[in-house]
Amino acid sequence: MQTVFWASGIITVIILLVIIGYILIKGLPAINLEFLLAEPIDSGESGGIAPMIVSSIYVTLVAGIVAAPLGVGAAVYLAEYAGENKVVKLIRFGAETLASIPSIVFGLFGLSFFVIFLGMGWSLFAGGLVLALMALPTIFQVAEVSIEAVPRSYREGSLALGATKWETIYRVVLPAAIPGITTGVILGLARAISEAAAIMFVVGSALSMPISIFDPGRPLPLHLYVLATEGISMENAFGTAAVMVILILIITVVTNTLVERYQKKMMGR
């Protein structure tokens, strides 16, 4: 029986290594400075992915700026102000629901609400707003856990010195919880930066370099989808996929380092 358990663990590791290894081995040769800095030529058959990188940065920035305050605010409210009552249960259920709505349904919502109803048109800004909604539950859930993990004595110390509740939260609790909150924001944005289905009918899928966030654009995952399904260029598709895999690897390393540091700080105090 031991062997079966070991096998299950090893299989999981092998699956990851095969996928990442394959994408990187095939994709890394396509990546060079020109690929990263040039605009695509002939719908991406040759040339680079610079506009896609900029598009991805724009939508992720919009998502972060919108979702981070909302998620952290909700987490502060639940951790510091609310007791356990019906409203709190409803709020938690709301976050869970938001987390489990399929991305393509978000896409339809983005199209009918932001693009058409609010008249934003196809734009990276509208795409960023959709992604903000998708990142929100992750940011909220991780932030709540890290705010609750701040030791009670911190709050008591601050309150005893005469600080008000909000001063205590703002100057003592939040700074102490910052590594955890940052982790939550990064995890939420990691979901946003990988998402294609939710934005495919919202960002307009334009190939040109977006100047402002109100221009249409084509973030990296959507570009990979188009390149692969329309058979435009497998070489550039591998390159784009490799760029995204590297991004995800960096994000995993950064969040793990943050979490480790945070745990050390909270326990080794």
Binding site: G9, T12, I15, L16, I19, S194, P221, A228, N256
Partner: peptide, 26 residues
Amino acid sequence: FRKILKPTIETLAGIPSVVYGFFGLI
């Protein structure tokens, strides 16, 4: 081994679905 498995699972969760689809296609 746990120290290897945990980040492995986190990374599997983080890989974009388009990349999975692309791997499946190829």
